[in-house]
């Protein structure tokens, strides 16, 4: 499916995140003491320094902070997708992550609400894409 290097599923710290993606969920650690949701994965909370934290399934909802549109192929792997947009999504739980938008670039704008949808990158390895929560046409 992909010829690019895949995430290291054996990384004990981050593997729950990658495993959740393959099951169609975005999971991040939530601090048991202060409730801060963190990404990237870490052994302790960067806000209150409490160790540990439970892996929680997030809502998959957020808003577009900004986005870049790839009109011409810059890499053979993505040539067939052009034009496509990659957004920096501000998740409602706080973290910001990148994700490819499934909507046509001309329908996007900063601040619009989006929701995650999931694809398989390779056997057992998933990835989150995003689509507008409500397409502008509807």
């Amino acid at each position: 499916m992909t010829t690019l290097p895949l995430p290291d599923m054996s990384d004990p710290l981050a593997s729950p995140h990658w495993q959740a993606l393959s099951q169609g969920r975005i999971a991040m650690q939530r601090c048991g003491a202060c409730g801060h949701v963190r990404w990237p994965a870490a052994l302790s909370c960067p806000e209150c320094l409490t160790e540990g934290g439970e892996w929680n399934t997030l809502s998959g909802r957020g808003t577009i902070w900004g986005y870049a549109v790839y009109e011409t192929p810059l890499h053979p792997e993505f040539a067939g997708l052009c034009p496509y947009a990659v957004a920096l999504v501000h998740l409602e739980e706080g973290p910001m992550i990148h994700g490819r938008m499934l909507d046509p670039p001309e329908e996007l704008d900063c601040g619009l609400p989006v929701v995650a949808v999931f694809e398989q990158l390779a056997d057992g390895i998933g990835i989150a894409r995003f689509r507008l929560e409500q397409s502008r046409g509807s």
Binding site: L4, G66, Y70, L74, H75, L81, A87, L88, R100, I127
Partner: peptide, 23 residues
Amino acid sequence: GNHDIHHGMVDAIGSMAALMFRR
């Protein structure tokens, strides 16, 4: 590196510049 390439972010500086200017 790592996962971001799979979103199709093929150039770090160009991608950052584009989404920052869109903002």
